Amino acid sequence: MPTAADPLLLAAARRGDAAAVRDALDRGARVEARDPELRTALLLAVLGDHVAAARELVAAGADVNARDARHDSPWLATGVTGSVAMMRVLLAAEQGPDLTLRNRFGGISVIPAAERGHVAYVQAVLQETAIDVDHVNDLGWTALLEAVILGDGGRAHQKVVALLLAAGADRELPDRDGVTALAHAERRGFAELAALLRG
Rank of each mutant, 00 (worst) to 15 (best):
L57E: 03
V80H: 09
A69K: 13
H118M: 05
E172C: 02
L193S: 05
D138Y: 14
E128D: 13
A4W: 13
D63G: 06
R34A: 12
M86P: 09
R22L: 01
A162P: 07
L44W: 01
A130Y: 14
V119I: 05
R67S: 11
I131F: 12
A162H: 13
G199P: 04
E37L: 14
M1R: 15
M1C: 15
D26E: 14
Y121A: 02
D63E: 08
R22E: 10
S83E: 08
V125H: 11
A120C: 03
R102K: 04
A5G: 13
L196F: 03
Q123G: 12
A113W: 10
V148I: 03
H50K: 08
G79Q: 05
A11V: 06
A124N: 15
G107Q: 02
V179S: 07
A18L: 04
G151F: 07
L193M: 04
R102L: 09
A29T: 03
T142H: 11
D98M: 01
T100K: 03
A59S: 15
P74M: 03
V119G: 06
R104Y: 07
K159T: 04
H135G: 13
T100E: 08
D6S: 09
G28Q: 07
D6P: 14
A52H: 11
P97D: 11
D49P: 12
R176L: 15
Q123E: 15
G189T: 05
L173F: 05
L99H: 00
D6Y: 10
L90T: 08
A69S: 12
A24E: 06
L42F: 08
R171F: 03
D49V: 14
G178A: 12
S83P: 08
N137A: 05
L8A: 11
G140W: 09
E186Q: 07
Q123A: 09
D72P: 06
A41I: 14
L44H: 03
T3V: 07
L165R: 14
P2Y: 13
A92N: 13
P36M: 10
L150A: 07
A185T: 07
L44Q: 00
W141E: 13
V110Q: 11
D134K: 02
V136M: 03
L10I: 10
M1S: 15
V179A: 09
D68E: 12
I131S: 04
A183F: 12
L197E: 05
G106S: 03
T81L: 02
A66Y: 09
G154D: 14
V80D: 08
R198L: 02
E37A: 13
E192D: 15
G82N: 06
A130H: 14
A147V: 01
A41Q: 02
D68C: 13
R104D: 11
V148Y: 06
D49W: 09
A29C: 03
V125M: 08
V51H: 01
L43I: 02
M1P: 15
R188W: 11
A85F: 11
V21M: 02
D23H: 04
G106M: 01
A147Y: 08
L145D: 08
H118S: 07
F105G: 09
A169C: 03
L173R: 15
G107F: 01
Q127W: 11
P7H: 10
L182C: 00
A181C: 04
A156F: 07
D6W: 12
D175Q: 08
G107W: 00
L150S: 10
L90A: 07
E37K: 13
M87S: 02
Q95N: 12
G61W: 12
D138V: 14
V133T: 04
G168T: 04
Q127A: 12
R104P: 10
G168C: 02
L42I: 10
